[in-house]
Design a protein around this nucleic acid. Structure first.
Length: 260
DNA sequence: ATGGCTTGCACCGCAAGA
């Protein structure tokens, strides 16, 4: 089973990119973030025609997450298993959707950006991370096979930052955010990317400005964390930089794991 | 040099992203 995650930064603009990428990547499950459209504008029929069923939690202008599941591959989604948002955490922002696919718990999450340490948005990011972790603890107990996929808005290590000196203490790399990432790992999750040998300076996001992609001035902030059972069965984790080179690209690029 | 692009919304400039 191939599972991928991609922050598309507006599904309206990136719809064709997603369909094109699905055709070449042949993933079984694709987690999407930053749909930036309400549910009634979700292109369900277009994905259906491409061979994917979709579940989503949309929102006008901001946020919005979804999960696409390949129907041609015959995957079964337990309808009752679908959860939108973090249970018990009141939030108008649509940042989480979970679904169980063939017994594998898939979570598509768009972590808050946080703006800057000390800001109100950063405080929200910390609260959100606390709530996510407490829910995950329970959800992992229910689902030994679990993949937490998404835009974490956290670069966990200096290796995940093009210029660690320039970024030191900044939002996305601050000690508080990294401590939260470690707490997720301590639940018993594995960063699939670091399970394997990887090229130096491989990132998942590059700023639209200042020719950042051409200079490879990026961050690794999109991740797939796997429960022990899935980590043991994971044979690869790859970052596909190709869609970042397409016309009018998302500023993020997909991350893909293979589970056997 | 706190900008630089890109998006959506709502109107021709703004907030927000990371």
């Amino acid at each position: 089973m191939k599972i991928a995650t991609w922050n598309v930064n507006s599904l309206k603009v990136r719809q064709q990119h997603v369909i094109d990428w699905l055709a070449t990547s042949q993933v079984d499950v694709l987690c999407l973030q930053e749909l930036k459209l309400p549910d009634e504008k979700f292109p369900r029929a277009e994905f259906e025609a491409a061979g994917y069923k979709s579940w989503f939690a949309g929102q006008k202008t901001y946020n919005g997450v979804g999960i696409l599941v390949c129907t041609d591959a015959g995957h079964e989604v337990d309808e009752i298993s679908v959860v939108r948002n973090i249970p018990g955490f009141e939030d108008l922002q649509q940042r989480v959707i979970a679904a169980t696919v063939d017994g594998v718990r898939i979570i598509s999450a768009y972590f808050p950006n946080g703006q800057a340490p000390g800001s109100e948005k950063f405080a929200y990011k910390m609260r959100w991370l606390d709530a996510l972790r407490e829910w995950l603890r329970e959800d992992m107990a229910r689902h030994p096979k679990l993949a937490l996929c998404g835009d974490y808005n956290i670069a966990p290590d200096d290796r995940d930052v093009h210029d660690p000196t320039a970024w030191e203490g900044q939002n996305l790399v601050s000690p508080e955010e990294r401590a939260h990432f470690v707490r997720l790992i301590e639940l018993g999750l594995t960063d699939a990317f670091r399970k394997f040998e990887q090229p130096e300076k491989l990132f998942t996001w590059w700023d639209y400005r200042m020719l950042a992609f051409r200079r490879n001035a990026g961050l690794r902030i999109d991740h797939i964390l796997l429960s022990a059972e899935l980590a043991a069965a994971c044979t690869s984790c790859e970052v596909d930089k190709v869609p970042r080179k397409w016309d009018q690209p998302s500023d993020h690029t997909p991350v893909i794991v293979t589970i056997v």
